[in-house]
Every structure is written in structure tokens, then in C-alpha cells.
Computed example of a mutant assay.
Amino acid sequence: MKVINQSARRTDNNLLVITHLSQLLYYVTGFGGLLVPLILWLTQKDKVEGMDEHGKAIVNFQLTLILIMVLSIPGIFLFGLGILGLIYVGFAGFIIPIINGVKAGNGEAPSYFGTIRFLS
């Protein structure tokens, strides 16, 4: 009698790439850059190998960007320094998900530098 392991995880690098690139929805629709990766991570973390690690990194990165944006808005009134934070969020929020999407496609671990670890 053959026993089938029901808890086996599948390797799906394409879904990991989609999860990373779904962060770019902020630039297309104005929302969804946190919501879509969060839903993908919560529904697939037990089914896809590596999704838990990638999903946590994405959520931590998005929460860090939101925190920087919230702190930068009042920072604009303090010598205009908040504008630098908003510029960082604009560039980092666009470039880093693309880099990590390519890494996920190659089977590498994500590297979101400068991210506060809300989830570990």
C-alpha cells in the first residue's frame, strides 16, 4: 500500500515572481501593493515552497514603506526633509520588487535591505 504525502509543497517560482511584482500595483491602480501580496502569501504559504519567506519579506517591506511615508509627510514641514523620504519610497518601492522578482525567478532568497522586521 502506497502512502501519499498530502503535506508536500510544490515549487512554483512563477507564483513567487508574481507575488513580488504585485507590489507594483501601487503604481498602476494606486492601491493593492500590500493587499494582493498579503492575500497570496496567506493563501499559499503552506502550499508553495519558499512562499512563507518571500511573503514575510514583502509584507515587512511594504509596512516599512508605509511607515516611512507616514513619517515623511509631517517631515516636509520640518525643513523639507520629508521630501527625501518620499523620493526614497518612490524609487525603492519600484526598483526593489523588480530585483527580488528576478531573484525569485532564479530560486534565490529575497533581500529587502533596510526593512523593519514586523514579522519574523
Score class of each variant (00 low, 15 high):
Lys2Gly: 11
Lys2Ala: 15
Lys2Tyr: 05
Ile4His: 08
Asn5Ile: 11
Asn5Met: 11
Ser7Gly: 02
Ser7Gln: 12
Ala8Glu: 14
Ala8Asp: 06
Arg10His: 02
Arg10Met: 08
Thr11Trp: 03
Thr11Pro: 01
Asn13Lys: 14
Asn14Cys: 02
Asn14Gln: 15
Val17Glu: 09
Thr19Tyr: 00
Leu21Gly: 13
Leu25Cys: 07
Leu25Tyr: 11
Tyr27Met: 03
Val28Gln: 03
Val28Ser: 00
Thr29Pro: 04
Thr29Arg: 02
Gly30Phe: 11
Gly32Val: 11
Gly33Trp: 10
Leu34Cys: 13
Leu34Val: 13
Leu34Lys: 11
Leu35Trp: 08
Val36Pro: 10
Val36Gly: 07
Val36Thr: 10
Leu40Ile: 15
Leu40Ala: 08
Leu40Gln: 13
Trp41Tyr: 01
Asp46Met: 05
Lys47Asp: 09
Val48Gln: 03
Val48Glu: 02
Glu49Phe: 14
Gly50Pro: 04
Gly50Ser: 08
Glu53Pro: 00
His54Ser: 09
Gly55Ala: 05
Ile58Cys: 06
Val59Ile: 15
Val59His: 04
Val59Asn: 02
Phe61Leu: 08
Thr64Leu: 10
Leu65His: 05
Leu65Arg: 09
Leu67Trp: 14
Met69His: 11
Met69Ser: 14
Val70Gly: 00
Pro74Phe: 04
Gly75Val: 00
Gly75Asp: 03
Gly80Gln: 14
Leu81Trp: 14
Gly82Thr: 12
Ile87Ser: 13
Ile87Leu: 14
Ile87Pro: 01
Tyr88Ala: 14
Val89Pro: 11
Phe91Thr: 09
Phe91Ile: 08
Ala92Phe: 13
Phe94Glu: 07
Phe94Ala: 12
Ile95Tyr: 12
Ile96Trp: 02
Pro97Asp: 02
Ile98Val: 15
Ile99Lys: 12
Asn100His: 02
Asn100Lys: 05
Asn100Ile: 02
Val102Ile: 13
Lys103Tyr: 02
Lys103Ile: 06
Ala104Trp: 04
Glu108Arg: 12
Ala109Cys: 02
Pro110Val: 07
Ser111His: 13
Gly114Pro: 01
Thr115Asn: 03
Arg117Thr: 07
Arg117Asp: 10
Phe118Cys: 15
Ser120Gln: 13
